[in-house]
C-alpha cells in the first residue's frame, strides 16, 4: 500500500523536472463576476484567461454552470477554491473534495488552486481564510492534505500564500520555508499573491522584497494582484486588510515588476471581489497588468 502510494505520486507529480505550468497562458486574467458576462464574451484580447471560485459552481444547474460552460469554450479557466480548508488540523471533508473532483472533471480547468488556510471546523464553515502556525506538525498535516487533493483530482494544485494580520508565537519556521518544504514534499505548485506579500510584510513590519527573494519563484504557476484597505493596530501601526475592493496599490505594482523581472513571465490575475466595478474599470486594471508583463519580460 505504502509503495503503491509513493509510486502513484511519483508517476503523477514528478518534481525532479520543471513543473508543467504550460496550461494557463502567461497573460492576464481576471476573477470572473457574473455581471461582466456579456462584456467578457464580447471582448477580444482584454483578458487571456479567467478564474472562478469553485464553490460558486457547485450547484446542480442553472445560469452559473451554463455561463461557466460558455466561458470555458472561449477562455482557459482557473478553478480557485476558497472552502477546502487545507490548513485544518482535522481531515479534509471528503464530500467537498468530491464536489471539487466533479467540477474539475466537468470543466477540465487549466489550473486548480487553493489557499494555505483553514475555514472549516466542527462548528461549521466560517467563510474566511484563517491562519495557522508554521511548525513541523502543521507542515506534515498540510502536506498530507495536498497529497490527498492532488491524488483525488489527478492533477497538480497551486497553493496560495496568505495575507497575515498576526503571527503565532509557536511558529518555528519562516513562511517561505514552509512553502518551500511543501513544494519539496508534495510536488505542488505555488500561487503567489503579491498583494498578500505586501499586506503581510507591512502588518508584520518585515521587508516584502526579502520575502520575494526567498520565495521559491521557480514553482510559481500563477500570480494574484488585488486591492487592500488601510487600518491601524492597537499601537497605531499600519494594519492592511485584504479586501479585494479597489484598484491594486502602487507599491504592489512595483513588487509585481520585481517578480516578473526575476522569475520571468507568469499568468497574472486581477482580483476584485467586493464593490465590484463596471467592466471598463476592471479591464483597465487588466491592461495595466498586461503592460507590466510585456515591459518586464519582452516577447
Amino acid at each position: 500500500m505504502y509503495i503503491l502510494k509513493i509510486a502513484e505520486s511519483l508517476f503523477m507529480f514528478d518534481h525532479s523536472n520543471t513543473p508543467d505550468f504550460a496550461k494557463l497562458p502567461h497573460g492576464v486574467g481576471v476573477g470572473y463576476k457574473p455581471q461582466h458576462f456579456s462584456e467578457i464574451m464580447a471582448s477580444d484580447g482584454a483578458v487571456d484567461w479567467l478564474e472562478v471560485h469553485a464553490e460558486n459552481y457547485m450547484g446542480d444547474g442553472g445560469r452559473p454552470l451554463a455561463q461557466l460552460e460558455a466561458l470555458g469554450a472561449k477562455y482557459p479557466l482557473s478553478i480557485h477554491g476558497v472552502g477546502l480548508s487545507i490548513g485544518s488540523e482535522g481531515p479534509l471533508d471528503p464530500a467537498h473534495l468530491k464536489r471539487l473532483q466533479k467540477l474539475c472533471d466537468r470543466v477540465n480547468p487549466a489550473s486548480f488552486s487553493e489557499h494555505l488556510a483553514w475555514s472549516t471546523h466542527d462548528m461549521g464553515f466560517l467563510n474566511d481564510l484563517l491562519p495557522l502556525p508554521y511548525t513541523d506538525q502543521t507542515l506534515t498535516t498540510v502536506a498530507a492534505h495536498i497529497d490527498q487533493v492532488q491524488n483525488t483530482l489527478g492533477r497538480q494544485m497551486l497553493l496560495e500564500n496568505p495575507s497575515n494580520y498576526l503571527a503565532f508565537k509557536e511558529t518555528q519556521m519562516p513562511e517561505v520555508e514552509f512553502f518551500a518544504q511543501l513544494v519539496e514534499r508534495t510536488g505542488c505548485g505555488l500561487l503567489l499573491d503579491v498583494n498578500n506579500v505586501f499586506i503581510s510584510a507591512t502588518n508584520q513590519q518585515t521587508d516584502p522584497l526579502s520575502y520575494l527573494n526567498a520565495f521559491p519563484l521557480a514553482h510559481v504557476g500563477e500570480i494574484h494582484m488585488g486591492g487592500h484597505d488601510h487600518d491601524l493596530d492597537d499601537h497605531g501601526a499600519p494594519l492592511l486588510i485584504d479586501s479585494h475592493g479597489r484598484e491594486v496599490a502602487e507599491p504592489v505594482w512595483v513588487l509585481l515588476d520585481h517578480v516578473l523581472r526575476t522569475a520571468g513571465s507568469r499568468p497574472v490575475l486581477i482580483e476584485w471581489d467586493t464593490d465590484v466595478p463596471e467592466w471598463p474599470v476592471l479591464a483597465t486594471e487588466a491592461a495595466r497588468a498586461k503592460t507590466a508583463l510585456q515591459t518586464a519580460v519582452p516577447a
Binding site: A167, N203, L232, A237
Partner: peptide, 14 residues
Amino acid sequence: GLIDPKGETAPKRF
C-alpha cells in the same frame, strides 16, 4: 499566543 510584531497579544488584529 497570537501576536503582533512586538510579540504582544493583538486584539485589533484578531
